[in-house]
Design a protein around this nucleic acid. Structure first.
Lengths: 235, 235
DNA sequence: ACCTGAACACCGTTCAAGT
DNA sequence: ACCTGAACACCGTTCAAGT
């Protein structure tokens, strides 16, 4: 499978003719072109045939260099991972710095949503967080947590931020959830009438439901992040 | 597109011959068979051709009843949604009941992971939570929160649980993350040496990193849920 | 060493045709 | 009204063949 190009790693990427056009195809040309497609149109749009067309070669040329589509995705992820470095949070208090850290990381991830989607589909979404383990651990340690507390705190932030991003990715794009339409609204009214029958909870409950549905995900993230960080620090 | 079977909704599902075999194909037969495939093998395995083979009909018969693959997925989701009812949490204190609620919901969602994956791919993952809005809102209200606080609290729990499930789905199955292998470990050691260069944080930071990587996601969920609920209730 | 073209087994979808 | 068969345009992948 991968034995073809293990020696030939000298990567002919730079070899170009007098006009600057690519002379012979290189592994990096392929990865670059593939990343471009994923960035703009998502993983699903990355077909071997489209990629070949973009590069102006036959499909089979890609197979020679990369192996197959799976290996191509691996290559994309390796390339992507290399570009992720640690985030340096800003702020005076530990609290403020960790919250800002979470905010910045979330923004970065959302900025590359299509790539993140690809990474996440391969089960490697956690790994993108690893470069920042040290800096976050340092923050919690200097805030007075012991090592095992800090470890749990780091993982908690990781889950919180990455979970939020993956979730967001799945909510957007689609008609902003059917929160107020068809299936969902049917379910809501069904639940409302059921709890009214049972008379277990006050009528305010359905008021809360309506309020809750109107809260933008961004605000939920802000709120829960602050809460979480505050209680992580209050050991 | 959908005008074919809008009147013919009498759904011939029950029509069977003397041996109990299906006589003529019905919409519900199709949905049921499709759900079975998704449950056991995931959405990707649900191809129109395989479904037709399972049902013992030509592919085009499905198109007559359903429309196309997209409409089929819609039908599956509608069926699935109808089966989701509210969760009744157990426990004496509000704290304990809300935590148990989160735990149970997570378990339920993980038990139907392939279906949840499908729902989530269609951007409807939030809606599966809606039947439980009322009961959760009631808990927070009777714990003393006002309506807008309760609304935020409900959404926070929703994000927390659903985010955790979606995340989990993306981490498992794959070689349990490359947390200790190839790409990731390279990144870790790079980060370690970098922070050593900078000398910004104590050496214990990398100890924390190792500890953090070893924590199972289940434990992270337990820990962060308790923290979150506790601080949501301490208004 | 590097690339092409033809071919295979799979998709989703459409359409004319049967009963 | 309900279902079939053939066909089309797409996939990923393999392989013999060219230079």
């Amino acid at each position: 499978m991968g034995e073809r190009n293990t020696l030939g790693r000298r990567d002919t990427l730079g070899r170009r003719d007098t006009l600057g056009r690519r002379d012979t195809l290189g592994r990096r040309d392929i990865v670059r072109a593939a990343l471009t497609i994923v960035e703009s149109d998502g993983v699903k749009s990355l077909t071997m045939r489209k990629l070949a067309a973009d590069l102006g070669v036959a499909v089979t040329a890609i197979y020679w260099h990369i192996g197959n589509r799976d290996a191509l995705l691996d290559a994309l992820i390796e390339e992507e991972m290399a570009g992720w470095n640690a985030i340096r949070p800003t702020g005076s208090s530990s609290q403020a710095r960790i919250v800002s850290f979470a905010r910045v990381l979330r923004k970065r991830l959302l900025a590359r949503r299509n790539i993140v989607e690809m990474v996440s589909e391969r089960g490697l979404i956690f790994d993108i967080f690893i470069p920042t383990y040290e800096v976050l651990a340092g923050e919690f340690l200097s805030a007075g947590l012991d090592e095992s507390q800090a470890a749990l705190a780091v993982r908690t932030i990781q889950h919180h931020v990455v979970g939020a991003v993956v979730l967001q990715r799945r909510v957007e794009g689609h008609p902003q959830g059917r929160a107020a339409s068809s299936v969902a609204s049917k379910t809501v009214s069904k639940t409302v009438s059921k709890s009214e029958e049972l008379g277990e909870f006050p009528d305010e409950a359905s008021v809360v439901t309506k309020l809750a549905l109107a809260i933008p995900t961004e605000k939920v993230f802000e709120y829960s992040t602050k809460l979480l960080v505050a209680s992580l620090l209050a050991n």
